[in-house]
Design a protein around this nucleic acid. Structure first.
Length: 828
RNA sequence: GCCGGAGUGGCGAAAUUGGUAGACGCACUGGACUCAAAAUCCAGCGGAGCAUUUUGUUCCAUGUGGGUUCGAAUCCCUCCUCCGGCACCA
């Protein structure tokens, strides 16, 4: 009796069974090879979007494949549940952030379950629960003890109308996201994590990450931005003070015609001193700093400066050079002061031209000499030194080494390394985040909350209006506390942590999600970690992935883990595109998965997403493609249904071996070739699109051969084997339909516990190969030949072909190129 | 500006190590089934030409122009377009 493919019913049925039987529960088992498959956990925005469906479908293929291949797989999921959108919802709709978040999680959990992902839900992690964020606080305190968490004044975005700090993401084109006021820059005391201490580790760790996409490593490398050079001290004339600069081009130091300080440089104000134009200077410096902080303007802003009237002594040349304050010098890189070499640095060149400062050539290109008057732009390449005292005529490379050594010997400089990486500012004046566990006491200063008092709970009762600073400041019961040391009155820190902290270590928590004494159990973490495959959007290439690597290194230094890199293998998936743009609410081109699950089923949606393009590429959504995949699943369903009788009759006779003397049939070959191809595509390349296409080819082949095969006993047995293989190979992609068919053909095991089919390399080999015959590189003929025929035989055969003879004719054969089992190229 | 990545039929793509360009799917066209339609099944499907009863066969085609090679979508150089990252980092 033929039955229709009722996907809705089938998917519901198996999802319930899987859940009831808890077949995806991961247990530590030292006997088995573990496999940790991790996908980036979602923010509970309300709906699972297509990007996440793609992310999780990829992970599910790998997880299911690895399980069938005998690995002990951990495949967890959780919620990145703290963050701004919950607060915005509260401000706009008056719903409490916690309720909003938990409701969203409940809904999205349903969505994920309807897609049939093989998650171990017993390990679900939710970062907005005290059981989780308690450990953010715990780790923070450990870092605070080590001096890795510290407080300092820094610049933040400030909305003058709302009277509040804005995160960078809340500044939209220099305007406040809420009230459209122009955002100002303001200095505030903030908490920082000393990620810069780990700059070198983060960089050298790349060596282990050979299986990361190169462009991601490159982005991180640029972000860390290591450069080597030298520090040099320029004494200020008629003063006991001096100015230190960092340069990568100490070879150009004889060409330094002025120093430029950042307006924020501690000496700037002092150097202006009692200058007659002091007031103008003060105004300019104030304006310059905040202008300058508006990131958008960086690089486009006109270079401006003020002459302090003071001079500094170039320790190499003995020249007295003017000290300027210039808006193009960054305070937070290097020393906040630069030696300006207009002839060999384009920025200095422009500044010198605008301010009529002198220009001095000290590097010449090979075989040319430059003159100051003719320079139209700075010559920035390496070359040969001139006008550089004892270093003249050396090459830049030589001079860089020797001059740094000279400076060191004479006590005014030394070789040094700089990074662009900045310390991680984690303070947020926000409600829906992890409270920073610190208490301010007038007597005792900054005191960490004692471990036994953790967690510092996010207070439930709070007024969220989106105005005036941190919401927690206005909760007296939260703010007012006692000092753990002196028991006197004290004030609690009201800033909360950046939510990137939560995601910096959640994959540790998955390994022991119910651990109560520590953030995670070290033994469990040692068993499961590192993550064998981490899959996620390429948009997290820098921030999240650097923070997670940083936290792992800290946890290692604290002795809680032995791993040095959390994610040895990263699969950065491409974006989901529709109508030429990334799917996003603001673009209005979002397609929600639910409608498709309803209409075609989860299996179809998953198959389509995986089939459309390889994971690292962009995925272009098209409504029509879905139909094709749905049709394919229908066909698979039908062909198995039509041949159910095979499985009833001789179910005792499992896969049979070929008897002596029986030739290997095409269908056998196809079975083994397909298993090989699909396994390799999943295992080595993660190219699911080609894996699926070869399953489709396999189906087409079965379809064509089935009537023939049914004619004799051997054929029937092979057809049966082919159909079984078809179901097994499809399982990681479309698990529900496969589970149903697997049951219908008489199996009682879950597919996840069924071994992935193995291929026989001998059977997968082609015995007859097509040899291509080219003449002068152009395809002229083909013939079939036995595999591994000798070179002579193949050449002879190729030359004997009548077509080839006609073409070759009387021409002289120069040489013949031979590629084994592939081609012959006759060169005339 | 600097650093990456990509560009292949009408569309998504394939070609894994330099060796048959376009697998697989979508769309489209024709046919079968049907009173009819949908669904399904079968066949065709880069362009141009020649020949022809089909089987054939030639030329052109992987953004542009060059190069290396017996042979290039693949390697090298030029330019164009699109995407991503960084962006006064001394």
């Amino acid at each position: 009796m033929k039955e229709d493919y009722n996907f809705l019913q089938i998917e519901k049925k198996w999802q319930e069974i899987w859940e009831k039987e808890q077949i995806f529960k991961a247990l530590e088992d030292p006997q088995k090879t573990k496999y940790y498959c991790l996908e980036m956990y979602p923010y509970p925005s309300g709906y699972i979007h297509m990007g996440q469906v793609r992310n999780y479908s990829i992970g599910d293929v790998i997880s299911r494949y690895k399980k069938m291949s005998g690995c002990n797989v951990i495949h967890p999921i959780g919620w990145d549940a703290l963050g701004m959108p919950a607060e915005n919802a509260a401000i706009r709709h008056g719903v409490h952030p916690q309720k909003w978040t938990l409701d969203n999680i409940a809904h999205m959990k349903c969505q994920l379950k309807k897609l049939g992902f093989s998650y171990d839900w017993s390990r679900e992690v939710n970062t907005c629960l005290p059981e989780y964020y308690k450990w953010n606080q715990w780790i923070f305190l450990k870092m605070f003890e080590q001096g890795l968490a510290y407080r300092r004044i820094s610049w933040i975005n400030w909305c003058p109308r709302c009277q509040t700090v804005l995160a960078n993401e809340q500044v939209i084109g220099e305007l406040c996201w809420r009230c459209d006021s122009v955002v100002a820059q303001k200095e505030m005391e903030q908490w920082f994590l000393k990620i810069t201490d780990y700059a070198e580790d983060l960089l050298s760790g790349h060596e282990i990450l050979e299986k990361w996409p190169e462009h991601v490593l490159l982005m991180q490398k640029n972000w860390i931005g290591k450069s080597t050079g030298a520090h040099t001290v320029f004494p200020i004339v008629d003063s006991s003070k001096s100015i230190e600069v960092f340069t990568t081009r100490i070879d150009t130091i004889y060409g330094a015609t002025f120093l430029a300080l950042s307006p924020e440089h501690p000496l700037s104000r002092e150097l202006i001193g009692d200058s007659p134009q002091r007031e103008k200077f003060e105004e300019w410096i104030g304006r310059s700093i905040s202008d300058f902080r508006l990131k958008k303007k960086l690089g486009t802003e006109e270079k401006e400066g003020i002459d302090t009237g003071k001079k500094a002594l170039n320790p190499f040349s003995g020249d007295k050079i003017p000290i300027w304050i210039a808006n193009y010098v960054l305070m937070e890189y290097g020393t906040g002061a630069v030696m300006a070499v207009p002839a060999h640095d384009q920025r200095d060149f422009e500044f010198a031209k605008d301010n009529s400062l002198s220009i001095k050539v000290v590097i010449n290109p090979e075989n040319t000499s430059l003159t100051e008057n003719e320079l139209e732009e700075a010559f920035e390449d390496y070359g040969k030194l001139v006008n550089s005292g004892p270093f003249s005529s050396k090459t830049s490379e030589e001079a860089i080494k020797e001059m740094a050594a000279y400076a060191e010997k004479n006590g005014f400089g030394h070789e040094s390394t700089m990074y662009r990486l900045r310390d991680w500012g984690i303070s947020r004046q926000r409600y829906w985040g992890t409270p920073i566990p610190v208490i301010y006491c007038e007597k005792c200063g900054i005191v960490g909350v004692p471990y036994e008092d953790l967690p510092v709970m996010i207070p439930h009762e709070v007024e969220l209006k989106g105005e005036e600073g941190s919401p927690l400041e206005k909760v007296p019961s939260f703010v007012n506390t006692t000092c753990p040391h002196c028991k006197g009155n004290a004030r609690r820190e009201t800033d909360t942590m950046d939510t990137f902290i939560d995601s910096a270590w959640y994959y540790f928590r998955y390994t022991s999600p119910h651990e109560e004494k520590l953030p995670f159990d070290t033994k469990s973490a040692d068993y499961w970690l590192p993550v064998d495959l981490y899959i996620g959007g390429v948009e997290h290439a820098i921030l999240h992935l650097i923070y997670a690597r940083f936290f792992t290194k800290i946890l290692k230094d604290l002795g809680f883990t032995s791993i040095i890199e959390p994610f040895p293998r990263l699969l950065a998936q491409g974006m989901v595109i529709k109508d030429g743009a990334a799917m996003s609410k603001s673009k209005g081109n979002v397609v929600y998965p639910d409608d498709f699950v309803e209409k075609y089923g989860a299996d179809t949606l998953r198959l389509f997403i995986l089939f459309a393009s390889p994971p690292e590429k962009e995925f272009v959504w098209s409504d029509e493609g879905v139909e094709g995949c749905h049709r394919f699943l229908h066909r698979v369903w039908t062909i198995v249904q039509e041949n159910l009788d095979l499985f009833n009759k001789d179910s005792s006779e499992a896969r049979r071996k070929n008897k002596e003397g029986e030739t290997i049939t095409l269908i056998e070959k196809k079975i083994h070739q397909t298993i090989k191809k699909v396994s390799e595509d999943i295992e080595n390349r993660y190219h699911f699109n080609t894996a699926i296409s070869s399953i489709m080819e396999f189906y087409n082949f079965i379809k064509k051969e089935k009537d023939n095969l049914r004619k004799d006993e051997r054929g029937r047995s092979l057809l049966k084997e082919a159909l079984e293989t078809l179901v097994l190979l499809l399982t990681p992609f479309t698990p529900h339909i496969c589970e149903e068919l697997w049951e219908r053909i008489g199996n009682s095991t879950y597919l996840i516990h069924t071994p992935w089919p193995a291929f026989d390399p001998d059977l997968a080999k082609e015995e007859i190969v097509t040899i291509v015959v080219q003449v002068n590189g152009k395809l002229r003929a083909k013939f079939e030949a036995e595999r591994n025929l000798s070179q002579e035989e193949v050449k002879e055969k190729a030359l004997s072909l009548s077509r080839i003879q006609a073409i070759v004719g009387k021409n002289k054969v120069n040489k013949i190129i031979y590629v084994e089992n592939k081609l012959v190229n006759i060169v005339l």
